[in-house]
Design a protein around this nucleic acid. Structure first.
Lengths: 111, 111
DNA sequence: CTTAGTACTTGGCCATACATAGTACTTGTT
DNA sequence: AACAAGTACTATGTATGGCCAAGTACTAAG
């Protein structure tokens, strides 16, 4: 029951929402996403991101195409699908409700 | 990859935060908590709440005392400990940061 | 005594984040 | 050509927490 562990738990599911949102804004590959997440202070490692992307693809929420790179191996550039857009909408609602509910609880004064 | 599942994942850790916060406001027992969570639209079942309370107790973040009831079996009334208060402070920070980070991501426009 | 309601307990399941190690391709240096 | 370094992606195993479902124990009402 240490803090670090709870922090990990707290962002479960939210990562999926963030990634899907980033992809919805245009073609990106994994390192782009890592950069954006890091700049938003959401620390993520490769071992977390890649399996997540695989899950999203298997679920038909995103697609990718190989694009050759001038500095290294080819990259998978991801785009969101129509199903992905619909799912993202639902996630937005879910996240909004969760924020509302939580903030309602924690803003309650001593009874 | 259905919505329900993601909703479950999204609230991991957050429930712990909410419960601890509710207990910090004064003596309560499980049904009080369930009622408050439900009124905030956070649906929780017994099988989730009781193990969570046990974890919090084992971690020394909350204590309880038995109080007899006039309408049924005795109840465990929970109170927060000093350690619990400190932990709650940290969770507040964590939750605030998570909200900021997520909202930063999802408010980003198309690039 | 039986039934219903309340309060709490327990065991097993599942999905996700993570650590870690490994594969494959390209570029630059010797 | 051989090697090291950097980049991009893959695979395996672990731990945690929320949840379902079944079960125990106590009280009050019929």
């Amino acid at each position: 029951m240490n803090l670090e562990n709870t922090q990990v738990q707290m962002r479960k599911g939210i990562l999926e929402y963030c990634i899907l949102h980033i992809i919805s804004r245009g073609e990106v590959y994994a390192s782009d996403m890592l950069e954006e997440l890091t700049s938003a202070k959401i620390m993520v490692v490769e071992g977390t991101l890649y399996p997540l992307l695989t899950r999203l693809r298997k679920a038909g929420l995103v697609e990718y195409k190989w694009v050759e790179s001038t500095s290294g191996p080819p990259r998978k550039y991801y785009t969101i699908t129509d199903d992905g857009k619909a799912f993202l909408e639902s996630l937005s609602t879910t996240w909004g409700e969760l924020m509302n509910s939580t903030n309602q609880i924690i803003s309650e004064k001593q009874s």
